[in-house]
Design a protein around this nucleic acid. Structure first.
Lengths: 346, 346
DNA sequence: CTGAAAGCGCTTACAG
DNA sequence: CTGAAAGCGCTTACAG
């Protein structure tokens, strides 16, 4: 059916070993033989099958990326960083996504295994047992923003604590003494860390510390809207709100504007994530930026290193730095907008 | 090093054939033997290697997706649609991106070949020869928004012509008789089709037809800005502007607002692509939406069909429908905003 | 119901 | 410099 190395060997009157040598640029093959083989390859339009090669050399030259989801710009940025870096190291990328529950992620691990030389896993719910049970110990793995306390895996996490601390400190430096937080979902690690950063910043900045200032939220725009309405109704209104993500901040902004309250004059506002839209709302929204692209780059570099060193080195946990981007909503001047990317039109 | 089927066979005191049968749920194996094998699998923590299987059954159970780029929400939406549908059909997804020039795309084709049972290619620059030269004739391929006129490949294309025609007709229905276009890059097929739709709509609607109304652009925000400035300076100003994509429309909007001209009262504005940001600018921007997710779904379904029928069926070219989304910038009421997706916080 | 053997498409010591 | 052979990890007719 398909042309294989055997067909080429026959046509060129050599052994398949010789064909393989020519294909792999082995320099121990005579010029004349090489020519004959290359001629046969051309005539037959022979296309080597990577599967055979991989099985033989025991390397697939591919890395895998397991994502919980593919919604929004965040994951595409992760993929972009990973793909770029992987290509730079001559590795392919296998992507697998939409694994919300444990069952699905187990299937994903089982299916990707054997097809890749290393694996980057991003999943809020994964635990060490699931990994151990479904992946050979010899497969290098890097965990991206997972919540795993085991030290036997490399991991990269966003520095949520520090980002929140910095943002809230920034608000305090603007003179705010009473700062509300709209929290993320309970049991969500990102949310917990951001809350922790908020609290510590209040303490460090000697600002008002009061559980009354903490409103529940679930990272959705709607929950931000609701929380802001509640906050505005309180007898003593805070002078600033820190939303644990941008979606909630944008929801809050709607509620504040509907109430006829001025941002940032009457109440300052800040979010977290720095999604592209925050540059477009009015006033533009202060936020905390994570270099998502960097995240992918770092993960791949670490993984490639693990592959090269045959997974035998000291595993490390890395906190990826974040950066406060001040904008109008906290009273800072609006920085030049980052031009967004074209979409369909390529 | 790694546990293989041989180790299991030895431990369970059976042949590797039997182990294989147990693994594949063959029902011709005795209950007792099956138990023994399963026990051995568990004790050894045996994880089958997919590579051997693929080579043997001559199927990889994976499909490939080649993208020109990974910037922005468009490609992540494509990936999402493709991945979802692929998973539904029990196929894996191999993604390969950032192939701007021909050399790179050839490498991509060569590397992905053999690893997938079918391939979706999205590339503005690819031609039939490149495909033929680098992929076996037996490999099912679906071209996504490529510009290939060969009938030997399945293809899906966005109906740029129709979308532009509809949008411009919509403007004409608003009473506009003099409508400018900010064109996309020369030699870009999407841009050409949108221009063609614009022109035909003017003729069909008996609106003013004049090459003076056509301004150059290159799909960038900056080019839209420049074009709008030029348009506003003309002695006879058009009453509406159709930008060939949203990026340019947003650039144009900045220029118009800087000039103190009201949108849509003094000049109407519309774009193309319906990127998320158009809902956030003020006034919200009328645009043409492509269901990108559908695009991915359609592509995979077609590909799976081709794989099942061993690539032996009539190839077809499909134009994917688009939809006008009227908003404030053309004088229509603002529709409810679609809530955007959370990003980092998962 | 089970096993020995051939085969999938390659690579690579080993001999010559 | 070249080839025969073994091997990578599986599956699956074929015999028994």
């Amino acid at each position: 059916m398909s042309i294989t190395i055997k067909d080429v060997a026959k046509k060129a009157n050599v052994s398949i070993a010789t064909v393989s040598r020519v294909l792999n640029n082995s320099n121990i093959v005579e010029e004349d033989t090489k020519k004959r083989v290359q001629e046969a390859v051309r005539e037959l339009v022979y296309l080597p099958n990577n599967l055979g090669r991989s099985l033989s050399i025991k390397r697939t030259e591919a890395i895998g990326l397991i994502l919980p989801d593919l919604f929004g710009e965040f994951f595409s940025e992760v993929i972009r960083g990973v793909d770029q870096t992987a290509q730079h190291h001559k590795y392919h990328l296998l992507v697998s996504s939409s694994h919300d529950d444990r069952k699905e992620i187990e299937t994903a691990l089982q299916m990707i295994r054997g097809r890749v030389d290393g694996l980057i896993i991003m999943s809020a719910d994964i635990d060490v047992q699931t990994i151990n049970k479904n992946l050979p110990k010899s497969l290098p793995v890097v965990l991206l923003n997972c919540q795993v306390d085991d030290t036997s895996y490399d991991s990269l996490n966003i520095n949520n604590y520090y980002g929140a601390h910095q943002m809230v400190s920034h608000l305090i430096n603007h003179g705010h003494k009473s700062i509300s937080i709209i929290k993320g979902p309970v049991n969500n690690h990102d949310a917990e860390e951001r809350l922790r950063g908020y609290r510590q910043a209040l303490r460090d900045g000697k600002a008002q510390f009061d559980s009354e200032l903490e409103s529940p939220g679930d990272f959705s725009e709607a929950s931000g809207y609701d929380a802001a309405r509640t906050i505005l109704k309180k007898k003593t209104r805070p002078s600033a709100i820190f939303a644990a993500n941008d979606s909630m901040a944008i929801g809050a902004l709607s509620a504040i504007q509907e109430a006829g309250v001025q941002v940032p004059e009457e109440i300052a506002l800040a979010g977290f994530d720095d999604i592209p839209i925050v540059q477009f709302v009015k006033p533009s929204l202060s936020s905390v930026r994570v270099s998502i692209n960097d995240l992918g780059v770092l993960a791949v570099n670490r993984l490639i290193q693990a592959i090269r060193e045959k997974n035998k080195f000291i595993k490390q946990k890395t906190l990826v730095p974040v950066e406060v981007i001040p904008r109008e909503s906290c009273g800072c001047p609006k920085p030049p907008r980052i031009p967004f990317y074209r979409t369909i039109s390529n």
